[in-house]
């Protein structure tokens, strides 16, 4: 009990002040640009890679919901992304339903898994929460590895179809598939946006900044944490499901701790506590990995790791947070300059 009294936001990263974008006009403009980029992406980037960016972006947003808005660092989110990847694949293979339905089924499975894991983890805070979530994710990995009859073990789940009402262009051409799958991703982003701008989101920020005070006001902090954990797992599940459909297979890599690590890296790189950070970080990391891999260089981890270190040290709010603060400061200076003349 006593640690709950003193436990403020445990992660230094989480409580950092970021200047809010208050102008509604600017916000709509940014939204329009974001949507345009999402729609134009497969024209400029190899469509399967564009799909990867979109999936990782939503995955990162799901992590940010916990890290940036609630102050919880989950280091086991691969459990939800991967579970959904497998469940989505199994539904797609065995039921032959249109792929968005399979993805939805995968996301629901991820949420169901998140209920017990969340229930058992949210009592811990800070690094202990990260370790408990990691432990659970490793358990899921182990089970998937052992349960060969269902998951295919090390071979993974092969031959996942992109069924979509028999429309051949979508089912066979990754360019058209991108446009069929993007709405699923955008649905996830919409849910995240709604949640952080809701009374619920307001309570989450209160819990992040001062859990003891939130409890004194009558808020059941643990219940809120479980709720956001399950919600976040659902979004990670949507992303993981789209990813496995897009690739046509689900492998153990989807459940590995390195996947949990990569999504945290993407989230922090892009900037936490802002839904824009995830897409920016995802775009950067996925494209970089793709370029490095296709150039035959096999030390991808060294490069992304080095970039991560530089960005965390130089831009403490991530790319988006730093850019936003910079623009806000520049506008303030300009305004005060104009007032003086």
């Amino acid at each position: 009990m006593s640690e709950q009294l003193t436990a403020r936001a445990d992660l230094e990263l989480a409580g950092e002040p970021v200047i809010p974008a208050s102008r509604p006009g600017l916000r709509w403009a940014m939204l329009a640009v974001g949507l345009l980029v999402a729609l134009a992406l497969p024209w400029f980037i190899y469509p399967p890679v564009a799909m990867d960016i979109a999936a990782w972006a939503l995955f990162a947003i799901s992590v940010d919901l916990l890290l940036g808005y609630t102050g919880l660092l989950s280091f086991g989110h691969a459990a939800f992304w991967g579970t959904s990847a497998y469940v989505t694949g199994l539904i797609a293979i065995n039921a032959g339903v249109p792929f968005p339905l399979a993805v939805l089924g995968g996301a629901l499975a991820a949420m169901a898994l998140a209920v017990p894991i969340g229930y058992l983890s949210v009592r811990r805070t800070g690094i202990y929460f990260a370790m408990v979530t990691l432990a659970f994710a490793q358990m899921v990995y182990f089970i998937a590895n052992q349960w060969r009859s269902l998951t295919g073990g090390e071979n993974g789940l092969q031959g996942i179809p992109k069924s979509f009402f028999g429309i051949e262009a979508i089912e066979t051409d990754s360019f058209y598939f991108y446009y069929a799958a993007l709405p699923v991703i955008l649905l996830g982003v919409l849910v995240a946006w709604r949640a952080v701008n809701s009374p619920f989101g307001q309570v989450l920020v209160a819990i992040r900044d001062n859990p003891a005070r939130a409890r004194a006001l009558g808020y059941d902090v643990e219940r809120y944490k479980i709720m956001v954990f399950v919600l976040s797992a659902g979004l990670a599940g949507l992303a993981g499901g789209v990813f496995s459909i897009s690739h046509g297979f689900a492998s153990l890599q989807e459940l590995a701790w390195t996947t949990s690590g990569k999504v945290v890296l993407i989230t922090v790189l892009g900037g936490i506590g802002t839904l824009w950070g995830g897409p920016i970080g995802a775009g950067l990391v996925v494209v970089l990995e793709d370029r490095l891999a296709s150039s035959g260089f096999n030390g991808v981890g060294i490069i992304t790791g080095a970039i991560f270190i530089v960005i965390v040290l130089a831009f403490r709010h991530g790319i988006w947070g730093t850019a936003r603060n910079g623009v806000a400061a520049w506008m303030r200076r300009r305004r005060s300059g104009a007032g003086g003349s």
């Binding site: 709604r194 701008n197 809701s198 009374p199 989101g201 309570v203 808020y219 809120y224 709720m227």
Partner: peptide, 19 residues
């Protein structure tokens, strides 16, 4: 936030915070 606490409004993640 304090006034909303007894109402359960805080659980509504599907509504606008303008509520």
């Amino acid at each position: 936030l304090a006034l909303a606490s007894p109402t359960g409004l805080g659980y509504r993640f599907w509504q606008s915070s303008k509520r």
